[in-house]
Structures are given as C-alpha cells and as structure tokens.
Design a protein around this nucleic acid. Structure first.
Lengths: 364, 364
DNA sequence: CTGAAAGCGCTTACAG
DNA sequence: CTGAAAGCGCTTACAG
C-alpha cells in the first residue's frame, strides 16, 4: 500500500531544534537521552524549544536504527489474525505473553498471517521487531522460514519443533493418551476423532487412527499417536477409529466433522476432539441430531478454555496452562534479547479435567 | 531495558552483498525493490549471493526510516495490556481492527498501558508506527497527549472526544437511556448503578445519579446522564439512585460493588451495570446473597458480549457492534495514512437485547 | 541496464 | 559541560 507522506508542514527534527538554538544535535539528543550530560538550564532551553517547534522527541525508527533495537517483539500465528482473536486459547496465550512484554517495556506486534496460499513472507521480513515468538505453526511454514532468516532471537510455542531453538509446549502425546485412556476406562470401544488439519492439504482427508501420516503439524501427530496408544493398550484397534479433519479450529468445523462421524455405522459412543473449540462443535452436532450427552455420546475436548466449564453439560477435557505458556514464551524471548544463556525448552504440565460430558458406555 | 547486540557474527548488510558482487548498493536494493530495474541474470546473482551470505533482505528499520513509514499501527488501551485480553469487548474490537490491518498489510502493535501512576508516555514516543488508534481512554490521559504530539494520524474510539479528530463510537447516552427506560417500564423504582471509574481517583467515590460530576471518562458521563434522564422522565428521582464505582472493568469488581449496593436500605430491585463484565459480577453477587434473578433482582448490562447469552439467566443488555467498531476504526486510520479526506465521525447503532435477567417489579 | 551521491533522523564514543 | 564526526542500513532521483 502506498502512503503519501505529507509534504506540507514538515515535521520538526532534532537537527531543527539544534539549529533553532544554535547548539549541536548531540546536545539536543543528550537532553532526551542523557540528562546528566548537560546543564539543567540548557536542557530546559532545549525542551522548551522542542515544545515550541512541535518536535515530538527523537524519531523511534531513526533511534531504533542507530541503537539496533526495535522495542517490540513479533508474534506469528498460523492463521489470519482475526481468527486468533476468535480463539480463546490463543487469547489466553497472548494475555500471558503481554505480561512478559509489559515487564520489559516492549511492544507486541501482531503480524497478519493468512491462508496458506496467500501467505506472504514479506510481512515477516518487514516487521520491525527484536525477535519473534512463533505460535503453533506447521513444520514447513514459509513464515517460520522467513523468521529464521531474520537471524533474530526466536522462541517456538507448541510447533514446529526445531532442533536447538528455544521451545515451550506440553507433552501432547501423554495428554492425549490420558484423554483416550479416560474414555476407554469408561468402557468405550467405538470411538471417533475430530482433528485439526493433519496434512495441510485440501480436500480434507478422512483417515483412521491406525495410519501414521507424517503430519505437517507436530502437535496433531503427537496427539493422534497418544490416542492410538491408549486405545491399543486397551485392546481397541486404532484402525477402526475414524478421524475427521477440520480445515479450521472453529466450532462450526467441529460440528460438521461430528455430524459426519455420527452418521457413520456403527455410530461412535465417544468422540475425542483435538481442541475445546472443536468439542463445542461436537456438542452442537449432538444436540442437532438429538443425541444426548453424555448418555448417548461421550465427548472429550482438549485445552480447558474457560468456556469449557460453561457448556451443557460441562466439558470433560485436558487442561493446559495457556496464560503461563505465553508468559514463559515471552520471558524466554526477552532473556535471549538480553543474551543471557539460551533458555532450555520448557514442557508445561497438563491434566485430565473430569466434568460432565463423558460417562460410562452403556450399549454393549 | 538493555540489550547487548551480538558483536560476533555481524549480520550481513546490503552493502556487504554489493561488495561481494562488485556492484553498487543501489543494484542490490533494486534487486529487492524494483526487479524491473535490472536484468534477470544480475538479479539472480544478487539473490544468490544474498542467500550465500545469509543476508535476510533489507532491514525493516532502515527501510522504514528511509521511506518514512513503519508498516504498523499502534493501539492504545486504558489499562494494562493483559487486561485487554481479559476483556471480551476489547478482544472483539481487536478482531475487527485486525481485519482492517490485514487488508492493508500492516502490523498491529499493542502498546503496554499501565495503572495511572506508572503510565509512561515513552511507550508511545518509542512506538514504531504510522498512526494510533486510541481505544476508550480518559479525557486527560497523558498517553493520548503523547500520541497527539507524535503528529501522526489518529482515530479515537469511544473516548475521549477531541474536536476535529476522527472518531468512532456509539450514542452512549441514548443507549443507556434505553436500558434504564426498560427497567422503569417494568415498574422498577428502586434502582442502583454499578459504574466504571468516573473521576479516575482513589478511593472510589460513592455517589448518586443526581450528581453531575465532570467525569474523567466521557462514556461514563454520557451513560449516567442517559440513565438519569430515563428515570426522571418516569418520575424516579435520580438522586435516590446510588452509584458505585469500580476501579476496573472486571467481574470481581462488579461483584463487590453489587454486594455493597444490595446491602443498602432499601434494597434496589434492579441494577444497571455499565458493562456486561460488571453485570456478570452483579449476577455473582446476587447468587451469593441468595437473591434470585430476575425474581428478586433485575439486572441489565451493557455491551452484549457473546457470554451475555450464556449466563443463568441470560443477560438483558445493550448491544453494540464491537467487531464493526474495530473494523471501522482501522479503516478510518488507514484512509488517513493514504491521506484521503479526513474521515467523518461514525456513530454506530445500538439496541436493547431483552433476555431473562430483568422482569417486572413485584414488591410494591 | 547500472552506479555515485545524497540523505532519512538519530546516537555515540571521543576530543576539547 | 558541549560539539564535530562518523555511521546505523537503506532508497531514490538522477546521470550515464
């Protein structure tokens, strides 16, 4: 996009203030940056002249260029930014992250992601930041590549896992295993999975838990593996568990996938969703199809966003500390900016939260 | 905070790539910015050398300085950033705003506000942005002042109202009037108000609707005026309606204020809250005090955030288009960056949403 | 199609 | 306590 800089009314500059006063630019600069380097009286005169000329103080970009820092960190998100704000888990994450940036007096620059086809690495190349936090992106995302090329500090959250890069996440496989284990311990044998994108290609594949696709998304891979392991252990064959992919992590997509799953024969008695958002959609689908939860259908989610406690029935799910994740990620990045020792990867705890949406299987 | 730029392994620069190839910096620059200005073969060589040297492309800050644009817009929020993410109305607003920045290929820089005492205008002075959107701030906020001094395009959302500056908001007075009018039409005569900060001072004042403080917050002033007008019209004296201030727009503060209000004599039969967040707190307080809503107490909110439809009972409230507000604000700012004609103020529509939390007064 | 020159607005040793 | 000089990394007319 083209901006026309206003030619009239040129903004005052440091040099202009210096000229007005007949002092050197260094002196004006010092008035702002090192008050102890000049007499209080002179400093007063400088500040007064600045105010008179409408000089707003040193230009952030020029100062940043000179000093070699931008004063902000960038956040990369898999999807459009507007989707990020619609995703409660992401909002919690940003909340934690913002605590860290506030502590450090840094700004938080949210970059516009986009659908895969329209993704433009230039948004990363042009971002005025001192570092990036990569939030849950695919293993081969060009934006991640672009961030790496910037050669600034980076921390990765959830995915992709890149050898040697600071990381914060959870043990997705173990957490998923706990979820599936819970259902299996309740006697469920006919299950279904509502998943995120696994291969990042359209049209969405329908697969089963017995397959081991080299998913584009590490997190999906790990959770699917966890589900499969728990089932296998209980004597349920993963290859008989259908997996439906969702193009987006939205309630609507979860509903669609669940409808398909619930129209299959034999109908699953339990559905595992890779996120609470998707699980909410499963609940919607069940309601539409007049299946009552948990009597006719058990549902388990993943994330434990606050809304999960408010559904009818309240959602049984896997808790993970979203806010804490953001806080840690931010602090890790800031530690790198200060060039303290490169932070160790952090794996945060998860836990099964038993509420009302899953119960004992009755029909066999 | 101090960052130590890594002295080892200096990052490659455009000049370095030029030197490597024996061409001028202009040529390397053209390879990135005006591919048509050099032969494809030469461009290939340049890009190849860049890759070889690990040159990540033109530095965003240097480019920005030269071109006079930052590629991002800044958002100013009244409170700590972490509170912004906890406020559903604000998150909806940011969602709309991010649609606009995405359209324009701009980043969204969230700036750290802070409690009034710790507020640092430098965060505004140092922000690398092409313009600001000021989201609902007090009439005399130093951060707004600092943004004004930057002499970049600005749009103001909700407050403060500054003559001549682009604005997007709602008719707060009329909306509040509709809310109070609804309660009054249901026969309520003993009312109470749970408000935001009005004067921005501690300790929080307790006042009544008959007072007309020159509130620090235009929105609070207007809504209080609207409430008072509707009551007066119905023959209820505003000076008998207690107003309790909340230091923050949180559920917890709303609960606290409501408890005080409900402990007064005579107990109000209806409470008006200046936001849904506060109204949720009122609902919490009623539950704690074993007052059933709406039988013992009618409650009306303001905002119509999605959660309002999910409470028990669902909240009667005033709807306003948060996402649309963000979208419009963003587009107005971007229009100014392109220096199209300065946008006209926009007043967005509101509406009373009748749900279950307010009913006819019974006890008189 | 390519390059020399000027300059965006500032800060930082360093010399006085 | 103050100033001259160099330079952060780039882009943009302009001349050839």
């Amino acid at each position: 996009m083209d901006f026309n800089p206003k030619p009239s009314e040129r903004r005052a500059t440091l040099k202009g203030v210096a000229a007005e006063l007949g002092v050197s630019p260094a002196t004006v600069s010092n008035a702002y940056n090192r008050p102890d380097q000049l007499s209080p009286a002179l400093r007063e005169r400088v500040l007064e002249a600045a105010k008179r000329l409408g000089y707003p103080g040193p230009d952030p970009m020029a100062r940043g260029l000179r000093r070699g820092r931008a004063g902000a960190i960038g956040v990369l998100y898999e999807d459009r930014l507007s989707f990020a704000f619609a995703d409660p888990a992401e909002v919690l994450f940003l909340r934690g992250l913002s605590v860290a940036t506030e502590e450090a007096g840094l700004g938080l620059l949210l970059l516009s992601g986009a659908p895969r086809e329209e993704r433009d690495p230039a948004v990363v190349g042009n971002a005025v930041v001192d570092g990036f936090v990569v939030y849950s992106m695919s293993d081969d995302d060009p934006l991640v590549q672009a961030a790496l090329e910037r050669r600034v500090p980076i921390v990765i959250v959830d995915q992709p896992r890149i050898e040697g890069l600071p990381f914060v996440g959870i043990d997705d496989e173990a957490a998923a295993r706990a979820a599936a284990g819970h259902l299996v311990s309740l006697g469920h044998e006919r299950l279904g999975v509502v998943a995120f994108e696994i291969l990042a290609k359209t049209p969405k594949a329908v697969m089963d838990l017995g397959q081991h696709p080299s998913a584009t998304f590490r997190v999906s891979r790990a959770r699917l593996r966890g589900y499969a392991a728990a089932l296998e252990e209980a004597g349920v064959s993963p290859s008989e568990v259908p997996v439906h992919e969702c193009a987006e992590n939205t309630r609507e997509e979860g509903r669609r996938a669940a409808r398909e799953l619930l129209s299959g024969e034999p109908r699953p008695t339990a559905i595992m969703a890779l996120s609470d958002q998707l699980a909410f959609g499963v609940l919607d689908a069940a309601k539409e199809m007049e299946l009552s939860v948990p009597e006719d259908l058990s549902v388990i989610g993943f994330d434990d966003v606050p809304e999960a406690a408010q559904t009818t029935p309240p959602l049984t799910t896997i808790n993970q500390p979203h806010v804490e994740k953001g806080l840690r990620a931010g602090r890790m990045l800031i530690a790198q900016l200060r060039e303290e020792k490169p932070p160790e990867p952090e794996i945060l705890p998860t836990g099964l939260v038993v509420r009302g949406s899953a119960t004992r299987a009755t029909d066999h």
